[in-house]
Structures are given as C-alpha cells and as structure tokens.
Design a protein around this nucleic acid. Structure first.
Length: 594
RNA sequence: GGACCUGUAGCAUAAUGGAUAGUGCAUCUGGCUACGGACCAGAAGGUUGGGGGUUCGAGUCCCUCCAGGUUCACCA
C-alpha cells in the first residue's frame, strides 16, 4: 500500500496547481504528526505554501483542506489553527494499514537492494596491551547498533575491526612480562588474557615512573629524565627488534597477543557484538607510504629539507600535516590513508563509517582532506561517527590512574544487580534456574546498552554505575518489561486474529497508537541517515510508555466486545513485534518473560 | 593562541526552522484480592549559558561574549 506521506504530498501539490496555478516542489510540503494536544492525525504546515497562494496561511490552509477532503478518501475532515492544517485520516485507511503490517514479517525493515554497494563500519579498534573499558563499550555498542540500523534501512554492511596489535605499547607489556613476571599465562593464573597482559602494562608504567622520578631527584628535568629511563630504552629496543623480525620477540608478541584475543573474544561475546572481518595493524601499518610518494611525485605533497614529507592544508585553514618522517617511516595518518585506499580498492563501498571517539575529530577531518587532495573521488564517502567521552560522576576517567571502569567488571556488575532486583520482585518463581540466569543476563546487558545508546553519540555522557541500574523510567528493562507483558497477554489470549475487524470503531488512544506504529519505518530511516541509534531508543521508550498507559486504560482480554478484543490483540502483537525489532537494532535482547 | 564539539529545571535527557520546550530520576499527593504495580494518575520545578541578528516563526541558523571538553606530536 502507498504510504500516507506520499499520498498527501501528491495531493497537496495537485491542490496548489488546481487552486493557485502554481507548481510547488515536494520539499515545500511539510507534513508532520499532529501534536497530541490538537485534534487531527497529520498536520500540513501551510506557511511555506502561502507565497504560492498569495493569501494568508489560514485561508490557504482552509482551501487546501477543502480540496483534500473533497478529493481523497483517506482524508475525512480537517481543522485549521493559524498556519497549521490538521487532517483527520479515515479509520479505513488505518485498518488497511494495520492489515498490511500484520502480513509483513519485518515491518519497518527495508530489504537490501542487491545492486547496492555495501557500507563498511569500522568499530571497536582496540589496542592489545590492555582490557576493554567503558569507553570501548560505547564504541562497540554504537558500532554494532548502527550496523544493524543500516542493514534495516536497506543497506549492505561490512563490520570490521582494526586491531592495533603492534607498537611501543605492546612492547611495554611484553617487556614487563619478561622482567617482572615468572612465566605467567592465562592458564596458570586463571586470569583472562587481556587482563593479564594489561596488568603487565601497568607494571611497566609503574617502573617507568619510578625511574623518571629518580632521575628528577638527581636534578634532571622531566624531559631529560624521560629520555634517560633505561626501561623505556629497552622497550624501544624491543620495538626495533620486532620491526626487524627478531624471532624471539615475534614469538612472544604472538603469544601475548593471542592471550589478548581470547580475552577480547569473550568480552565481545558478552556484549553481543561481532565482526565480518578483522584487520591487524601489523599487516597494514606500511600501507599508505606508496600513496604518499605518488602524491609527492605529482606535486600534491611536498618534502622538507630534512627529507620528511608533508601535506599543506593551509587552503583549508589548517596547518601542515606530516605524512612521512625524515627517516622515511610512516605515521598514523599515513596508515589510515593506506587502509582507506585498500578498502575502497577491495570493495566498491558506498560509505565508510569510522566509529572513533571525538578526540580524533581533527584526524578524520584531515584524513578526508588529504584523500581528496590526492585525487580520490571516494574521499567524500568517509564518515567519522564521532562519540563523546564517557565520564564518571567523580570526573574524567584516567586509565593511568587506575580509575577505569573495566568492561568485564561492569558487565558482571550489571548482571548481578539484575539478579538481585529480579529476585527481590520474585516474578521468576516458576522458571528453571538455567532460564533465570539467561534472563538476568538479558536484563543486565539491556540496562547497560540502552543507557548508553539512548544518548546522542556526539555528546559526552556521565555514566553513574549506581544510577544506571535504576530500572524505572527511560531504561532498557522498562522496555523489556513492556515486551514481556505483551507476550504474557498474547499467551493468555491464544491465537492473534489475522485481520482487523471490519466493523470496529477505534477510539482516540487506539488511533494514537496506530500513528506511533506508522512512524516506525521513518524512525529507522532517520536513525540510519543520521547514524544515531538514540533515535530508535527514544522512539521505543515513547512507544512502550504509550502502550503501558493503554494497557492501564483499556482491558484487552476483558474488552467490552469481541471485536474490541480482536483489535486490541492485533495492536498488542504489532507493538510487541516493533519493540522486539527495535531492540534488535540496538543489539538488545527481549525476554519472553521477566 | 587557532580549529572543532558541547551548554536545555537539582540531576539526566528529547525536540526534519513550526503550535503552550517533551520525558525520566529525585521531591510531594493519590491509586495494588492485579488482562503482570519493574505500573498508572496528578503536583511542583525552565528568562533553552548571556547579548544581538535573520525569519511569519529560533533551543535549532548567523555574529559576539561566557563556561566546559577535545585537538593542534617525526605518538597511535
């Protein structure tokens, strides 16, 4: 069936031609859901049409309203308030609409066009020297959710992870393991591999700081002291050996990284995220050098006297950016130029999304500019999905100060609290223990994920571990609860009717619910266009809340008539499907009971 | 200092340039022998950081000032 927006837009343009002899662009036809406090279903904002009619907004609205009621079966009445034309949509349109939704197993989802190029989403991108923390959680949840949202909006998606497995940071852990450890392994200690390696990174940092302080006490200034530190010199030497392919160093590197990957896999599994492809920096860090040299040859870049190669971005109001050091080696930017080029060569990408924290805004701005400068027409297809920091109530997290909220600890804490609260409410009495554990997990993770995803990504957010486990209000568990309750009612009712009863006279709240249902596909599109899962989250909350109120106001299983019951069961079933589908897009499970 | 981002009740958040700025937490009042109370109904709480401007209309766009954050490495 045709969407209401299209029917109305077409008819409004037609009306303006017939009434005023003018052709209005579709973009000037502004339709929106009528606000709750006014009567009507859909509102046409007439101000922008007023110039075409050469009449006042109210008069224009009146005339267009008359035209629409006269020409469209879907419009059965209207009222005008100032420049707003509020249209009443016929019950039969809504009934047809609901029937269409019932026969659509994936309402709201746009099926992918096979000819469409895929979108690549890079997210997570951890370093292999320490475990994941709260900031990574936001990254992973955003990346995974936006991938699902893009898929639901009809795009093909390739989820990739670029693991930063090489560099001085991992050498620090390796060195500390050699110096201070006793051959510990994840097996021998029972510790997750990423935590074990992370502990040695901390040990390195402590030893390094101690050395620096000692040199300062001897009268060095800080910079001199840092340069004089023997342990740092050792780490640099280890990196040099790594780059030279030293067998022993490579073997240790391989071993310790493999511990970390096992640990990460567990955390990813807990968070419910996954990837289609994993890139390793050890395999890509040399990419880009060739591109830079080619750019240099073409005169797009320039070389300084010391041999280093730079991009001049002064035309864009920025500084110069180093691309190759004076010794000819690459920097971070060079790598990213190379990996982007590699990916656009390997795949015909429609977009490339980088889910990376906002401290790298400048980096990605420059990345796009340099790629454009080098003449790649796909430079404009990069998009940096930038997100704000996650702060604690006490202040900014500082990994060096040990104030990080560890991802694994946090997940455990959420699940534990979910269990405590559920047990207190005692609603899961008859369910087998094994199922209970699963439900606690779903609730705990649902609380965490929803809390983080409901916030606009670009904003910094405060994560309060205590308050986040408040299961009231705009929370994941509230939405999960609404779903479980709907399923409970549907179980009791038996079979859900397959068709909207033809004779039923819908009340105002039922129509309001239908309008909410009607919005779902456009919310998915908006979330995909803006790369913002928060739009889905807030829509789900509003819907769940509205539906709870509906539950409260109207009996479903004891409705005043058979047709009313059928109708309300259909609304319930559809709303349940929307919640399940919407939560799926956020990467959140919904329990059948809780 | 330059660039970018953010600023909405005590706290946390929402609002394709549209109508009286929604919502939750906390606070206060009322409602459970229940289609599932992890709920619902109601009250109180706002000069949308300040000031200009554009517009029929500004939390939203422009200018300016203030506050906070990030960044401006031959680190990644």
């Amino acid at each position: 069936m045709r969407s209401l927006d299209i029917i109305l837009t077409t008819a409004v343009r037609e009306a303006v031609v017939k009434l005023y002899g003018k052709d209005v662009p579709a973009s000037k036809v502004q339709l929106q859901k009528t606000r709750r406090e006014f009567s009507g279903d859909v509102t046409l904002v007439v101000f922008s049409l007023s110039p075409f009619s050469a009449k006042g907004p109210a008069e224009t609205a009146q005339e267009i309203g008359n035209y629409l009621t006269g020409h469209l079966n879907e419009v059965e009445g209207f009222n005008v308030i100032k420049g707003f034309l509020n249209l009443n949509i016929s019950a039969s349109y809504w009934a047809d609409f609901l029937n269409a939704v019932l026969s659509d197993a994936h309402f709201g989802r746009t099926t992918a066009d096979a000819a469409l190029s895929p979108v690549m989403v890079e997210y997570s991108s951890p370093n292999t020297n320490k475990p994941l923390h709260l900031g990574h959680i936001r990254n992973n949840l955003l990346g995974f959710s936006i991938s699902r949202i893009l898929e639901a909006s009809g795009r093909k998606v390739i989820k990739v992870n670029l693991v930063n497995d090489r560099g001085i940071h991992i050498c620090k852990s390796m060195l500390a393991w050699q110096k201070f450890g006793n051959g510990e392994t994840p097996e021998s200690t029972g510790k997750k591999g990423d935590h074990l390696v992370g502990d040695y990174y901390v040990r390195f940092d402590q030893a390094y700081k101690k050395e620096v302080e000692e040199f300062i006490a001897k009268g060095y200034n800080r910079e001199e002291a840092e340069n004089a530190s023997p342990i740092m010199a050792e780490a640099r030497e280890m990196l040099r050996k790594w780059e030279a392919g030293d067998k022993e160093v490579r073997a240790l590197w391989h071993t310790m990284n493999s511990w970390v990957y096992e640990g990460f896999d567990e955390t990813y599994h807990q968070l419910g995220v996954n990837f289609d492809k994993i890139y390793y920096e050890s395999e890509t860090y040399k990419l880009g050098r060739k591109l830079v040299l080619e750019g240099l040859e073409k005169g797009l870049l320039f070389r300084k006297d010391d041999g280093s190669v730079w991009a001049d971005l002064s035309d864009e109001g920025l500084d110069q950016k180093l691309l190759l050091r004076s010794d000819g080696t690459s920097v971070y930017m060079t790598q990213d130029l190379g990996t982007a080029h590699q990916r656009f060569t390997d795949f015909d990408l429609d977009r490339h999304i980088y889910v990376v924290g906002n401290e790298q805004n400048y980096h990605f701005q420059v990345l796009s500019i340099i790629l454009a400068k080098l003449g790649f027409e796909w430079a404009g297809k990069l998009y940096h999905l930038s997100y704000g920091m996650v702060e604690l109530p006490e202040g900014k997290m500082k990994s060096r100060e040990g104030k990080v909220v560890d991802a694994d600890d946090l997940v455990d804490e959420m699940v534990r609290t979910a269990k405590e609260m559920s047990d207190e409410l005692g609603k899961l009495g008859a369910i087998p223990d094994e199922d209970k554990e699963k439900i606690y997990y779903q609730i705990g993770l649902g609380a965490l994920k929803y809390f983080i995803l409901k916030v606009d990504p670009k904003k910094n957010m405060t994560f309060n571990p205590k308050e986040s486990i408040d299961f009231n209000g705009n929370t994941g568990p509230f939405i999960q609860y609404s779903y479980a309750r709907i399923q409970s009612v549907l179980r009791k009712a038996g079979e859900t009717p397959a068709q909207v009863p033809a004779t039923y006279d819908m009340n105002e709240k039922e129509i309001s619910l239908i309008k909410t249902i009607y919005d779902f596909p456009s919310v998915i599109q908006a979330a995909a266009n803006e790369f913002n899962p928060a739009l889905i989250a807030n829509y789900l909350y509003d819907s769940a809340k509205e539906f709870n109120q509906f539950y409260h106001d109207y009996s479903i299983l004891k409705a005043e008539s058979e047709v009313a019951m059928s109708f309300r069961l259909i609304l319930s079933a559809i709303m349940g499907d929307i919640i399940r589908e919407g939560m799926y897009l956020l990467g959140i499970d919904v329990p059948e009971r809780m």
